[in-house]
Nucleic acid binder design. Structure first.
Lengths: 349, 349
DNA sequence: GCTGCTAACTAAATCGTTACAGCTCCATGG
DNA sequence: CCATGGAGCTGTAACGATTTAGTTAGCAGC
């Protein structure tokens, strides 16, 4: 036996003088053979360094790989460092792991034009966020289950939260104390890329970004209810939910002369709000006395600090758990809305 | 053709009246057949809904899956929410993605006693951190490449940083301003689990955790050099690098009567240091005037705040990139030490 | 003694590709 | 006119498992 080639199930069968079926059963179905033979096989396998059936061959034969692919709208580099996406992945991993599955990470923003060759190996797909191109999704094997999170696909079970009411509730809370100069910081909500002040209202609402769009609707509803004309509220936009991208926009906002500087900042995400908090503190502004700030998401970083962020907590971990359970068929595949919770921190009491 | 079964390469070949080899070549090796035939095949494939060769079968035949497994010492739930691990994963993903590979996430802390069935499907393994049990590693296919990060495995290329000198340098910086009451917060450095004050010096240095051990050595060296007996410095320990686990320990430290409360806190990680910062601010202590704090790692969260954390930055993204390059054979497989950088923020000027 | 049943095992087909060897045909060069 | 060679294609043997159907042997019941 040349040690060059790895040992296979067949080799082991020959060595032991039994059929390959018995070896396979010894590893997979203990009830199908006598305990004596099973033990003999397992011992000999260990002695000869056979680590068990090859996953590649098994997956071809059985049609299943025990792999669930998570397709993230953004790049992996971004997603892995984004708290919301990370929590989602945590929840997914937790459930998959408990049921003997593993997680393959893919990005919808495919490198170059080709999708990865290993894409169609997965047993199922969890899609997170708005896909830049739908072609990738249409190329997935149709018979494999697909679950979407925070993004609607036709005829596909989806997990979301109710963004409009959630956003309305936090805005309403903030407006209980009437602001002198409120402002809103949107996330990627303009048709044309715009990192700064939104001057043309008509440029608002890029067709697709329904999540942040709903959040802005909620905010507008709260404004109207408080007798404030939404059109009179200055709006800003950031292109990416990343500190370094948000910082210059927020610096512009805060560096205005005091009589123009907002005293209430409604932010579309905690990342934006935290950046605002940092920049305010660096300028010696007191939060919440000089400036009140709200976020959205409820990430840990916003709660593990002083002052804590006033925000809407969405349970991304639970989103992930549920998505994984749906994919594995442990929960019914349906449209599911998870509840949110208003967290009132010191940043906007 | 019943639409029940998925279309295969062989079906397509029959439909077109060409050999399976030509279909395969049309998808994989354009130079092996005439452009005319290739186009005909690709068109027909699209028309009949054949999405390309099946990854499961291909991986069996070729022996490669284009999948690299990342085995994390901690649970996936922890790792995905830890900034250092996330940055490492980012770096890995970036390089793998650029070279047509995908990333499979595994945890060394296997669920139950069985390792995942899909483990041996990967083409290579990147191991991060101290494995709770080495049996998992010994079961990996021996002919597949293995690269370790922050953890020594015999005869295995490894990527680390020089923890002792890095830790020494930041401690020395902190001690330039002589502290009245310095203290150290260790990370999982006791033999017996201990979340709080370390009273018995003999209990220090759990056999394995060489990283934090080296960091403490560096701190001790700096103390000696400043004429301070390390044994006189109170030491504390936290069991997990998580806010909720660190918080009670740090609360104990800060809630001591003022004459015992430390004025310098050397923390083994940024996570610990940030928790300390938060708790100090909540108690109205001024950092750095009442209390100076240092961390270790250089995570973004520590720099995107005011005051910024004084810390040692290790480039975890680069660690990941390098690990991925080694696994793919793009960089020589060797023992590699990456450099670190002292970041001086306002938390300990 | 015959039938029927179960436990324990085997033989062979199959999963969907890739890769190797070989075949045909036409152009080229001597 | 024959040899040479390459372009373009085909046929088929792996790859390493799982699974179905089938073969024993042993035992119980009548």
């Amino acid at each position: 036996m040349p040690p060059s080639r790895r040992m296979t199930l067949k080799d082991l069968a020959a060595e032991l003088g039994v059929s390959t079926a018995s070896i396979s059963n010894a590893f997979n179905r203990p009830d199908q053979l006598s305990p004596m033979l099973r033990e003999r096989i397992l011992n000999e396998a260990k002695r000869l360094g056979y680590a068990g059936p090859d996953a590649k061959a098994r997956s071809l034969r059985t049609g299943r790989s025990q792999i669930i692919a998570v397709i993230l709208a953004e790049s992996l580099t971004y997603s892995l460092n984004d708290a919301v996406a990370s929590e989602l992945l945590s929840g997914i991993a937790e459930v998959l792991d408990a049921h003997g599955h593993t997680m393959l990470l893919l990005s919808g923003r495919q490198h170059g034009s080709e999708t990865h060759g290993s894409t169609n190996m997965a047993d199922g797909y969890i899609v997170y966020g708005l896909m830049p191109s739908m072609t990738m999704l249409s190329e997935l094997p149709a018979q494999n289950p697909l679950v979407a999170v925070d993004f609607d696909i036709e005829h596909c079970p989806t997990i979301h939260i109710d963004n409009e009411p959630a956003s309305y509730s936090i805005a309403r809370h903030a407006l209980l104390t009437p602001p002198k100069r409120p402002a809103v910081i949107n996330l990627r909500l303009t048709k044309q890329p715009c990192n700064g002040r939104i001057t043309d209202e008509h440029d608002l609402f890029s067709a697709h970004h329904t999540i942040t769009r709903s959040r802005l609707m909620g905010i507008h509803r709260a404004f109207k209810e408080s007798g404030i004309d939404p059109a009179s509220v200055p709006m800003w936009n950031v292109e990416e939910n990343i500190h370094d991208v948000c910082a210059p926009v927020i610096a512009d906002i805060l560096d205005q002369p005091e009589e123009h500087r907002p005293d209430l900042l409604l932010c579309m995400s905690d990342r934006i709000a935290l950046t605002a908090l940092t920049l305010a503190e660096q300028r010696g502004l007191c939060v919440p006395d000089d400036l009140r700030i709200t976020g959205f998401d409820g990430i840990a970083e916003g709660q593990y600090r002083a002052p804590r962020l006033t925000t809407v907590r969405q349970d991304s971990i639970e989103k992930g758990r549920l998505a994984a359970r749906m994919i594995l068929g442990l929960s019914p595949k349906e449209q599911k809305y998870l509840s949110t919770e208003l967290l009132i921190g010191e940043s906007c009491p």
